[in-house]
Simulated assay, not measured.
Amino acid sequence: MPSPIPVTRLLPKDIYPSLDLGTCSSPLTRPSHGGATSLQVPVQRPHGRVASRLWSSVIHWKELRCVRPVGSGGFGSVYRAEYLGQTVALKRVKKCAKNKLASRQSFWAELNAAHLRHGNVVRVIAATTCVPADFGDEGSIGTVLMEYVGSRDLQQVIYGCAELGEDRWLRYAADIARGLSFLHAHGVVHLDIKPANVLVSDADVCKIVDFGCSVKLDRGCDAGAVAPHLSHVGGTYTHRAPELLKGEAVSPEADIFSFGITLWQLATREQPYTGDRQHVVYAVVAHDLRPSVRAHPVFGTARGRLCATLLGRCWSGDARCRPSAQELLPHLEQLRSSRT
């Protein structure tokens, strides 16, 4: 069965024209010799530009040590490990018995940003679809090795930190906006921006992680053009843009809506909605329900009023009215420099 996402969508177009695609009909392969397993991705030509590829399609399992569980989610589990002398995060994407196609798509979507490098995006080191028997379980679709950022995510910081000053959460917001600006410039839409999918490093820098819901938009096409089989996007309903809840086309502006909900959480340190999921989704789409800005003193100051205005633009029901990620940055800088 062919991969739901063509291999050419895992690499930028300035790279993949120089690849030998071979005859593979699926990226799923059996273990190779020498203790390594790999994705059957295009091989390098000696004169090609793939020598500069920034991630590996091979995991050397004999070099992987001290695998310890860190957490788990809907489509996978995350571990801390040592690989080639470096601390890494290992994510195993598990099979979903109820929706096997969705779990396969989740694994391949994890690699949409694998070729990209940015200080506010978690870096992919290597990936494979085949795990040796003594390293994995039969329920795994694939494994992704990533840089280890730390054990804290923004969700834990917002709701578990004793103090979160305005300058600090505005700096976090700017980190996320810079990461999104970079991703969108390379055609990647994350589609699940929320505090739990933003890691906070020991240096107090935010990095976007978990690309299992992401989509790679084709360059040169309409921003809303996505493959039909990816139109049923996932994500978290409290942060999902209303156009996605209605089943409309994917665009980078969907991430801006999610950013707006996240920014509100940073400012208020509260949950955006209460009540039944079905009622919330209906109200967001039909009645423009948004988190409240009137009931919070933080929005009563000069800085808070500017923030409330920016929030209104970010979570506009009309995606065309939302700022781009790049346009967010000067607004956030204005907020940081404004008087409280």
Rank of each mutant, 00 (worst) to 15 (best):
A109N: 13
K98G: 04
G260P: 00
C307P: 00
R65H: 13
G235H: 04
G119T: 10
A241C: 05
L101G: 03
I59P: 02
L266C: 08
R339W: 10
K91M: 05
E327D: 13
S338C: 11
P46N: 12
V293E: 00
Q265I: 02
V41I: 15
L39Q: 05
R219A: 14
L263V: 05
W61N: 06
R336K: 13
Q86A: 10
G300K: 08
H190G: 06
G73R: 00
L263T: 00
I193E: 03
S140L: 06
G187F: 04
K94R: 14
G247Q: 06
P252W: 02
L310D: 03
Q156T: 10
V67Q: 06
R294E: 14
V70L: 15
P252V: 01
P252K: 08
H47K: 15
D14A: 08
I59G: 03
S292Y: 04
L329E: 07
P4A: 06
T23F: 14
T87A: 12
G71R: 04
S338M: 07
C161T: 10
L335M: 01
G179E: 00
S324L: 04
G300P: 02
V285A: 06
S56N: 10
V284S: 02
Q156A: 12
T238W: 13
S56Y: 09
T37A: 11
S38K: 15
R290I: 01
K246G: 08
P330M: 03
Q40M: 12
P291N: 01
K98M: 11
L180V: 01
Y83A: 02
I256N: 03
R30L: 14
R339Q: 13
I59C: 06
F211C: 05
S231V: 09
M146T: 04
C314E: 00
V50Q: 15
